[in-house]
Design a protein around this nucleic acid. Sequence first.
RNA 1: GCCAAGGUGGCGGAACGGCUACGCAAUCGCCUGCAGAGCGAUUCCAUUCCGGUUCGAAUCCGGACCUUGGCUCCA
Length: 405
Amino acid sequence: MLRLFNTLTRKKEIFRPLGDVVGIYTCGPSVYQYAHIGNFRTFIFEDILVRYLKFKGYKVKRVMNLTDIEDKAISTARKEGKTLRDLTEYYTKIFFEDMKTLNLLPADVFPKATEHVPEMIAIIRKLMENGYAYRGTDGSVYYDVSKFRYWGKLSHLKLKTGKKKIKRDEWGEESAIISDFALWKSYEKEDRDVFWETEFGKGRPGWHIECSAMCTKYLGTRFDMHIGGVDNIFPHHEAVIAQNFGAFSENPSRYWLHSRHLMVDGRKMSKSAGNFYILRDLLDRGYEPMAIKYLLLSVNYRRRLNFTLEGLVEAGKKLEKIQNAIERLKYSNGGDDAEKMARKTLKNFERALDDNLNTGKALKVMEELTDEISRINPDRESSEKTLGTYRVFDSILGLGLFKLS
RNA sequence: GCCAAGGUGGCGGAACGGCUACGCAAUCGCCUGCAGAGCGAUUCCAUUCCGGUUCGAAUCCGGACCUUGGCUCCA
């Protein structure tokens, strides 16, 4: 029985699907730069979750959005003298390549924000009609958070409503005052050719509306899971809930899952600290993609994971050890029975993943099986059965365990 | 300030009331034409601190101390 930690309730809850198909929406990449390994920690987690649900017999529909319009993307395109479209198409292509390199299954739908402006407008219209939105003096449309009584429920922040912006690093009484957020931003000349003519004027979408529009379009007003990194909790997912509630009177997702950020060399990964890794840099330096994946899976997604190059080497060794054991099983023709061990391991593997997708533990039980069968000389029949067990593991983990074959 | 997570051997990381995981690293053997891989053995007073509950605590309770994360750039 699968249990997942729901940010909304801050508890592990037994997973019960709403319908025949498990609907999963995940906040995908902003395609104006290379995705880094931290991004991939989240995407790998999501991938294993999807694969595991399928293994358990669920049908899954997964939607992953591509954010191809936002402030940074626009300014990056301007700096590089490219059109927004050229820029985002390039990084989208790279992202798909990286996903393939890491053996991640593609989502069923990859909707792009720029292709869903009419859907966004429809939701903003509803929000206006329902009294959750207003036109600002600058012509933009804002969400009035004072109208939403559950504002702050997901993030568990005690937020005071107000129009003031908080100042960072000046925590005091006023620090929890938050501002309304933009649904539709009116046109500024820095936007150049990035605009749409709509009933709310010439402009472009706000930061959060795309997810409301696209999750609703592809999964309906109520689906099973919404996933992202912890940084999305506030304000992004809080805003998505507010938007959907204002438009459709319900929280769009039953479970909200958030993966924790990874650390690099014991510190938060950041460009300024020089500990910022993107996939292709690591590959250029000779590291194996599956070793990277192995390391990223070695700790449960809600725990802090410290990414180091030493850890990466170690992960590569562990993976190799398993690959070697599998290779040996293909030809072993001894007299020992491995099947019992394999069956026990599969059970423990499932138990680990059932517990909030504890991939670290799952890898551990797999390593233990590997050690056990290395000590014996399995007979032909149980070797085949054990290989079957490894195939199950690999179908869920996608680690290329049969690489040597 | 508010809200969280966590502190286990040289390192990573299990165990959530009892049998002192496991892996990596290190040392020594075995196997091997060499290499790789593998096997066996060995070493290391590990549970932040102080109380409490208990026959028994890393695990439960209370209190310290410390670390990390979030609080509209961010997966």
